[in-house]
Design a protein around this nucleic acid. Structure first.
Lengths: 111, 111
DNA sequence: CAGTATCCCCTTCGATACTG
DNA sequence: CAGTATCGAAGGGGATACTG
């Protein structure tokens, strides 16, 4: 609480380890749990659920449950979540443009 | 390495706990270490140095050392660091616009 | 299929003390 | 003033097993 600088509020919402990645996927299309897991091969079930819960609590992500067997749950961005789009777009664009540079630098850091 | 989605490269560079906050300050003006510590009251010396070192290794931040006693070091964004400006601006703007909402939500989460 | 519950490692981070 | 080193606590996060 009582942020020293407003951008800390932004970080509170999108600062989780996987949140930006999840939202970047959901910005393109809504997804069910199993789809998210498939397109994010390295995330664990636990982290996926945990991050989605937090996004949901923050009002960024909507969770639609279909009452059927087997269960089906679809996640999508809320209107509030869409307000983050400029940030997500900028982050995605930067990543696409600089990915080779970053990969090189990070590789050297491992040594 | 080998990101599953390009935005992960972005997160590798700005994903640290304090990196965005530091860069948001440096985007306004270059700062010396003691100034950064002053405007970020809750960061520890250790974390400040650590995050700055990583930003420096990633080529985002420049470290200018004045050879004098007592020591003086000034940090600023590199040209490469300035390429992140659209992201930082978007994050700062969103935070300013939604800070009350976020503060309320986060407060309730603590309960 | 979607989610929860444990166990537990191991990284992160704070506190403190110390150097040039 | 700027930075390093060390120690220890805290919790993030993985692996696994289990439920409806």
């Amino acid at each position: 609480m009582a942020y020293n600088i407003p951008v800390e509020a932004t970080l509170d919402v999108i600062g989780g380890k996987w949140k930006v990645v999840i939202m970047c996927h959901l910005i393109k299309e809504e997804r069910r749990t199993s789809e998210l897991k498939k397109i994010m091969p390295t995330i664990t079930q636990k982290m996926l659920t945990q991050q989605l819960r937090e996004l949901e609590q923050d009002g960024v992500v909507n969770r639609k449950i279909f009452d059927q067997v087997p269960p089906k749950v679809i996640y999508s961005l809320t209107k509030y979540g869409w307000s983050l789009r400029p940030i997500l777009d900028a982050m995605c664009a930067w990543g696409e443009h600089h990915i080779e540079t970053v990969e090189d630098v990070e590789k050297n850091r491992e040594v």
